[in-house]
């Protein structure tokens, strides 16, 4: 039996009297590509925020590889092996693409707050940054200031940043948001390569992306889990059809 990498146990979130997540249990198993879908306002973003340590829980517990992580600061959770990307691109616009990734790689090499050598002088870090640039296909744009990259290049950089800390678990928040078909396909390819050897939890709106990429799908509506299972099964699930696919156009 494969073990749960992320395990949500009875978690809940209230904003005042508004219950955004209601007593939710979910296991994400090792090595799977797990999609989290649901109509707008289903609580997907809140859930991602809770797992990554940005939003405190109202109830319940979250485990990462058996270790309880709710209540920990985001940087602690990251160091335990969870990386994430953001729905709205969050890169460092004043730094070059290469430097963006270097910030990510440095931390894993234990070079965090050092003051004694230039950041470029660490050759192990530099080699890894080069490899990462190639992986997200930005090697031709290494020196360009991130704020001046095109939107899809920025999204690629965003993915690269999530990868930089070599996380065993990746949380991707709408990686294809705002992209054209071609750009989205490109990102799907990219995710396929980087998902090898990792556990990936993806929040996604684009059903094509979900069903072409993911092994398992969890459907969320109004803060509750209404279905979770293999992708093919979910596609046929009547409740899902009604709650989600029925209300939104399936592309």
């Amino acid at each position: 039996m494969t073990s749960a990498v992320i395990s949500l146990q009875g978690i809940a979130k209230c904003f005042g009297s508004l219950e955004v997540i209601r007593h939710l249990d979910l296991d994400v198993l090792e090595g799977e590509r797990h999609a989290l879908i649901g109509p707008n306002g289903a609580g997907k973003s809140t859930l991602v925020g809770m797992i990554s340590g940005l939003i405190p829980l109202s109830a319940g517990a979250i485990f990462l590889n058996g270790r309880r992580i709710d209540g920990l600061a985001p940087e602690r959770i990251n160091r335990l092996g969870l990386g994430r990307s953001f729905q709205i691109t969050r890169i460092f616009p004043r730094l070059s693409a290469q430097e963006n990734l270097r910030i990510g790689v440095m931390a894993r090499h234990g070079i965090r707050y050092s003051l004694f050598r230039p950041a470029t002088a660490y050759s192990a870090v530099a080699r890894e940054v080069e490899a990462l640039l190639a992986k997200v296909r930005l090697d031709g744009r290494a020196g360009v200031v991130a704020g001046e990259l095109s939107y899809s290049e920025q999204r690629a950089l965003e993915l690269g940043m999530a990868l930089a800390s070599e996380p065993k678990v990746l949380l991707l928040d709408e990686p294809t948001a705002g992209m054209s078909r071609d750009e989205a396909d490109h990102v799907v390819d990219l995710i396929r390569t980087i998902a090898i050897g990792r556990t990936v939890l993806i929040v996604e709106h684009d059903m094509d992306v979900v069903f072409s990429l993911c092994d398992r799908v969890t459907v969320l509506a109004y803060g509750e889990l209404i279905a979770s299972g293999p992708a093919a099964e979910i596609r046929r699930n009547a409740r899902v059809q009604e709650a989600y696919l029925g209300t939104e156009h399936v592309a």
Binding site: N78, F92, I103, T120, S165
Partner: peptide, 24 residues
């Protein structure tokens, strides 16, 4: 030019992002 200096730039741009890369 040092790691701390580059990190400081990154914090000036997006502090939350920096935290998710494992920095305090």
């Amino acid at each position: 030019l040092t790691p701390l200096g580059r990190l400081a730039f990154a914090i000036g741009d997006d502090e939350t992002r920096v935290r998710f890369l494992g920095y305090n």
